[in-house]
Simulated scan of single mutants.
Amino acid sequence: MNSSILMQIEAVYYPILAIVGVPANLLSIVILPRGNCGLTKCITYYLVSMAAADILVINFEVILHEIKDTYFPKSFLDYTSICRLTFVFSFISIDCSVWLTVVFSFDRTVSICCQKLRVKYCTEKTAALVIATVCGLCVGQNLPLYFVNQPGNIIENMAWFCVVKPEFYVLPTWRAYLHFHTILTPFCAFFFISLFNALTIRHIVRSSLIRRHFRKDIKDPTVKNRRKSIILLLSISGSFILLWMLISFCHISVQFTENQFYQTDYIDPFTITEHTGYMLQRLSSCTNTFIYAMAQTKFRNQLKNVIKCQS
């Protein structure tokens, strides 16, 4: 792919992603807490927190990074002290989005597979505590990233831009941190999401077969609701895994080859793959609202009502 073509695609792609992604997630935050979508408050807490994390990803990764670099180069956001913070908050928001998806999958597994534990775990208080804990851990885990970058230029005694320090890929401490970060996100997240989904789907399928055996000629609303649960759960977690797969390949490549992240050589195959992976990864931050609209009739109705009120 010609470098100019990739840059032109990014120049159009990211503004469209921001224009679509921010309103879509805001609609989820507005609609879901109203309680008219047939979801428990526990589920609503998770879905709203995931939408909020996705908005942060779009703001830091898409607007303050990609769009800013393309359309507003060399602004005050390029001061090293500021872009270091933007860099850290980008990873914090990404990790929050990923691990909130994991704990949401776990909550659904407990709710469906563990009836005794469900009463104590699947509550609003527990959901709020889990969400706060996950976000706090994501903040703590990514604070060392503030020290990963160094100034790219010194202009009139002012540090500009952020460049990854060469020792980040050499020093054992930083390499260990990079390995840990890569294993944790996204590979541990992939494993846990796949595990929780497999357990949930197996339980639902078994329960549905048993109920269908005893209710042969009767339409069972429980089976129908469980089928919708499978569709919603698989759509959210499945789209997440698919959209993260390419950038995950890049993470593996950096661990075992001489390739490095954030290079600007758009002719290099790894750089092209990395940028394509980032485009897909960031797309995952605006897909959930469309998944809700496709999987939940009540959400679609509420969405129509909101649009009618605004028109």
Score class of each variant (00 low, 15 high):
192 F>E: 06
257 T>M: 03
283 L>R: 02
190 F>T: 08
17 L>Q: 04
39 L>P: 15
165 K>C: 00
138 C>F: 04
156 E>T: 14
75 S>E: 07
194 S>W: 07
310 Q>R: 14
105 S>W: 03
108 R>M: 15
68 K>Q: 14
73 P>Y: 01
60 F>M: 04
118 R>T: 10
152 G>Q: 06
261 F>I: 00
99 W>I: 11
44 T>G: 01
63 I>P: 04
189 A>S: 15
122 C>W: 00
223 V>K: 06
166 P>N: 01
271 T>C: 09
182 T>P: 13
303 L>W: 07
84 R>I: 00
206 R>Y: 10
43 I>S: 14
105 S>E: 04
32 L>Q: 15
19 I>T: 02
24 A>I: 12
295 A>F: 14
221 P>M: 02
284 S>M: 01
121 Y>C: 13
177 Y>T: 14
278 Y>R: 12
8 Q>K: 11
265 D>W: 05
34 R>C: 03
268 D>Q: 14
71 Y>P: 07
6 L>V: 09
1 M>L: 15
147 F>Q: 05
226 R>N: 15
61 E>D: 00
131 I>C: 01
192 F>Y: 13
157 N>G: 10
213 H>C: 04
29 I>L: 11
68 K>E: 03
218 I>Q: 12
141 Q>L: 11
253 S>Y: 10
155 I>N: 09
233 L>I: 12
59 N>S: 06
47 L>D: 04
258 E>P: 09
246 L>Q: 14
10 E>W: 01
235 S>H: 13
200 T>A: 06
195 L>P: 13
221 P>A: 00
286 C>H: 09
49 S>E: 04
296 Q>P: 12
311 S>V: 07
208 S>M: 10
141 Q>S: 06
59 N>G: 12
284 S>A: 11
185 T>P: 03
133 T>V: 10
68 K>F: 00
287 T>I: 10
234 L>Q: 13
111 S>R: 11
78 D>K: 05
24 A>C: 11
173 T>E: 11
213 H>D: 06
231 I>W: 10
188 C>S: 12
170 V>R: 13
290 F>C: 10
244 W>K: 15
9 I>H: 15
172 P>I: 06
41 K>Q: 10
265 D>C: 06
101 T>F: 02
187 F>K: 05
123 T>M: 03
17 L>N: 02
263 Q>Y: 01
17 L>F: 02
7 M>H: 02
3 S>D: 08
47 L>I: 03
204 I>T: 02
51 A>H: 08
16 I>A: 04
88 V>N: 03
135 C>R: 03
143 L>K: 11
164 V>M: 05
123 T>G: 07
70 T>S: 09
242 L>G: 14
64 L>E: 01
259 N>W: 00
188 C>Y: 12
83 C>M: 02
86 T>W: 00
81 S>T: 11
155 I>R: 13
207 S>V: 09
160 W>K: 04
123 T>A: 03
147 F>D: 06
184 L>M: 12
233 L>N: 15
213 H>A: 08
269 P>Y: 00
76 F>S: 08
53 A>W: 07
